[in-house]
Design a binder for these strands. Structure first.
Lengths: 312, 312
DNA sequence: CTGAAAGCGCTTACAG
DNA sequence: CTGAAAGCGCTTACAG
């Protein structure tokens, strides 16, 4: 079996507590015995049993990140930053997938209740808020990213979606758009906030708009039309779907993160870049604060986007 | 603090061992006391401390997956399957990023030595094989995916890359290609095997070829040219780069996984789809076998691709 | 059916 | 500077 403190203690003819101290660099142990212990430990290929350490310290130095899916931009982009930030602070980031499956999600929350991690980041789907009750009772450190897991007392780090969408629509309007097709996701509050921001601009000016695909489409003949939404690919699909009927139509596009890949049939394309690095670092710092009990305020922090770029 | 077995024992006026048994569903405990214990445990919001369990069982029921980066196809596609497969078998898949950073990679291997997981899947970068020594000495269950972590005794699950590339070139040849530009990655044996497979077909027939970008480019004027490589996007870039000089050139493309997004300037496009689900399940099963000591054979398992599709 | 005890591998006051 | 002891929260032979 694997080497334990006891084995080293026997070889070096000292007590396990001395071995433990030496290996942790406790200055109290005699320099020469310390040296002897560390070299023997290396020789024997000793590595500590983290489960045992956890049991006494009550900490794991692990943080989990719960995600629905690996293919989302909001997963791929901030995660790299978050992992590096936490590593620099002595924590390991462990990513777990719930596959947009509510049972798997519950299962992961249950695991979190069992002290597998010191805290968790969650990119949530809107499930029953009761799922979180055991964790909340324990005051388990939880930071939501991008969207709220439930309304009420929670900590969420997200883009300033409402303002961002407002500005995006404004750019498109200034570029000549006379009417707007809105295409935001409704399943989470990030998408709904974006829609609200877009509507705020549009309604204040009484501009014509329709919500895709729920409302009947606007007629796009001879009217400069903007398509506003989260995803460039969705916008691209709307362009394809509409321009079948209106061959010469040219669109103005405004979306988040990445532009459409095909830019024919577009006149202007604006892209709002979220600040993923800032989102990750803010979420990371909030987590550290919670763990160290510096602060456990329940708040939503909105990160301004990096900017809106005119791609075409 | 959180509820422990002891707390429940006190409330129910029984010994902790009885509580432990009741909660684990041991049939020996009296039905009514068992019921009392389980209801009390639920009332108090008891959840077991996994660190303590690990310490006695020596198992974590966790498996780690070490990856360089979230954006790779070979990461995104099999991971979903692997996670589900392992979950169905009682294990948790925890994904960790090493950011193509050799120190972070070493750090993760070190953690693995410390009993944080019962085994690990690795999508490796070719680092110093010595990194693995401590793990190999412990006979720690390791399964490589897509590429070998080091040559010699290891277990790797990968696509039958050589044959796949051979067939891909064959398709392009049959579609009329008279010369070939090869564009495979050299940093890992998956890419090198593909190149070997491609070359086997090409050299046997003495067809002209060049290796991009190392060798001087072929002249593509009036000669049907195939671009063969792993990535559709790279092929696309080669098309763009060449067709600047040869405006009317039309290419035949053969690549893995996903076609280029822009198909102008291509005459035919073949895509070889790897069987990610089979890769994941095979890797998962091999891991379970190793953990249960059913088999610890060191072997490379090659999964045939799902097929080669003509996209255009 | 249940309890008392030992043990998993480590850490850390406490005493000397 | 070092050892003996207690304890982290659980499980599981062993006895009864």
């Amino acid at each position: 079996m694997s080497v334990k403190l006891k084995d080293i203690a026997e070889v070096c003819e000292v007590n396990v507590s001395t071995v433990s101290r030496a290996l942790r660099g406790d200055p109290r142990v005699n320099e020469t015995t310390a040296k002897q212990i560390t070299t023997k430990a290396a020789e024997l290929g000793y590595s500590p049993n983290l489960a045992a350490r956890q049991l006494v310290s009550g900490r794991t130095l692990n943080l989990w990140l719960l995600i629905p899916d690996l293919k989302l931009t909001i997963v791929q982009e901030p995660t790299q930053f978050l992992s590096e930030f936490l590593h620099a602070n002595g924590y390991e980031l462990l990513i777990t997938l719930y596959h947009n499956n509510s049972e798997k999600f519950q299962h992961l929350l249950e695991k979190l209740s069992q002290n597998v991690a010191d805290g968790a980041f969650i990119i949530p789907t809107e499930y029953d808020p009761k799922f979180y009750l055991p964790l909340l009772q324990k005051n388990f450190p939880l930071v939501f990213i991008d969207r709220e897991g439930f309304s009420g007392e929670n900590t969420t780090v997200t883009t300033a979606n409402k303002q961002a969408a407002y500005e995006l629509v404004k750019k498109c309007h200034q570029a000549g758009a006379k009417q707007f097709i809105l295409n935001f996701e409704f399943e989470n509050n990030a998408g709904r906030n974006r829609q609200n921001g877009a509507l705020e601009y549009i309604c204040a000016r009484q501009l014509p708009f329709s919500v895709w695909p729920q409302q009947p489409p606007l007629s796009c003949t001879n009217v400069p039309t903007a398509i506003i939404g989260s995803s460039g690919i969705s916008s691209e699909n709307i362009v394809l779907s509409i321009s079948g009927n209106v061959p010469n139509a040219k669109f103005i596009i405004g979306n988040f993160d990445f532009p459409p890949t095909i830019l024919d049939k577009t006149e202007k394309v604006f892209v709002c870049h979220q600040n993923f690095s800032a989102i990750a670092k803010t979420a990371g710092q909030l987590m550290l604060d919670k763990i160290q009990n510096i602060s456990n305020a329940h708040k939503t922090i909105e990160i301004p986007p990096e900017g809106i770029i005119c791609v075409k």
